[in-house]
């Protein structure tokens, strides 16, 4: 309404105002349409279609298909394989995020001190973040090689034998977790460093004058100030970790015996290995629900922080 009056005042003649507005509407449609159309066709429609597919026994190898209700979900919930994969995904996600963020925080605090060539160290620490997971996964396979890899060399130097971690049911998950931590460490370190640098220096100075030591300043001044960022990194880290695919696909193919299999790789395998689109879709929906839960936690927390 207010916009309308301004428009009339500016132009004076109502007739011109109408065509001008029409021109603006037309421009809006032309500008927004391409993006919106693509989003509807290639994101919204497939999204809803997934829910529908999860209720069918759609199989690319068979000519016909039926509605099977929640059968796919029941089948998943009853299969030990599903619970194994859920367990892997959760251990992997919470493990990489907890260890990764602890290391990042320590590293960010160190980088926040007086340092020679700080920019260079930050550059090195950040670099894994921009590299190709699928290619670096090959490097890690080579490093993990039980005979010729660097780990084998380091172990034998200590007089120990390095196991074939990628073929070991016990070590395979920790082995790919290390790769994920390596890949994500730099991002959270750089973000935490920026947050630490944004902490009000007068507060820290005041605490120092009051006789607080470095640890007390960190514990009571710096860390509380960066908790929103820390929380954000936790949630987004978890969401990224849950969706891990490249590392699993390249390094282990989910094996041995599903010990490194996770949701997205299983979705991929059900859909494009076994052609069971229904089951794969049901699994995708379950994963979506878990991801939504994290998103919900994130927004809730954010609201609380706005009032802070």
């Amino acid at each position: 309404m207010t916009v309308d009056t301004r428009q009339t005042q500016m132009t004076g003649t109502p007739r011109w105002h109408m065509t001008e507005r029409r021109r603006e509407y037309l421009a809006f449609i032309l500008f927004v349409m391409p993006n919106l159309t693509l989003l509807i066709i290639w994101t919204y429609w497939p999204f809803f279609h997934s829910f529908y597919l999860s209720l069918t026994n759609w199989n690319l190898l068979k000519p016909t298909w039926d509605m099977v209700g929640v059968d796919n979900y029941l089948r998943l919930l009853r299969s030990p394989e599903f619970w194994q994969i859920t367990r892997n995904t959760l251990i992997f996600s919470f493990g990489t995020v907890t260890i990764g963020l602890t290391l990042s925080l320590a590293l960010a605090v160190s980088l926040n001190q007086w340092l020679v060539a700080r920019g260079f160290w930050r550059l090195v620490v950040f670099s894994p973040h921009i590299t190709t997971s699928a290619a670096m996964a090959l490097v890690w396979i080579s490093m993990y090689d039980p005979k010729h890899g660097i780990f084998a060399a380091a172990f034998s130097w200590l007089g120990l034998r390095f196991p074939n971690v990628l073929a070991s049911p016990t070590f395979v998950l920790p082995a790919i977790m290390l790769v994920a931590i390596w890949k994500s460490l730099g991002f959270s370190t750089v973000v935490l460093l920026a947050a630490l640098q944004g902490v009000d220096t007068t507060l820290k100075e005041a605490a120092a004058i009051d006789g607080a030591n470095a640890w007390q300043i960190f514990r009571n001044v710096s860390f509380p100030a960066i908790t929103p960022v820390f929380y954000f990194l936790t949630i987004t880290g978890l969401m990224t970790a849950i969706k891990t695919f490249d590392i699993v696909s390249v390094m282990t193919g989910g094996g041995p015996a599903n010990r490194s299999n996770m949701y997205v790789f299983q979705i991929y395998r059900e859909a494009f290995g076994f052609q069971r689109m229904g089951v794969a879709s049901a699994l995708a929906v379950i994963m979506f629900v878990i991801v939504m839960l994290f998103t919900y936690l994130q927004t809730r927390y954010k609201e609380r922080w706005v009032s802070y």
Binding site: L39, T43, W45, F47, H49, Y263, I267, M277, A284, F288
Partner: peptide, 19 residues
């Protein structure tokens, strides 16, 4: 409506897109 697509992970649209 555009913003909401943020919440849709590409993993859930993969299979219908493929079809």
């Amino acid at each position: 409506l555009v913003l909401l697509t943020f919440l849709i992970p590409s993993e859930i649209t993969l299979i219908p897109r493929f079809i």
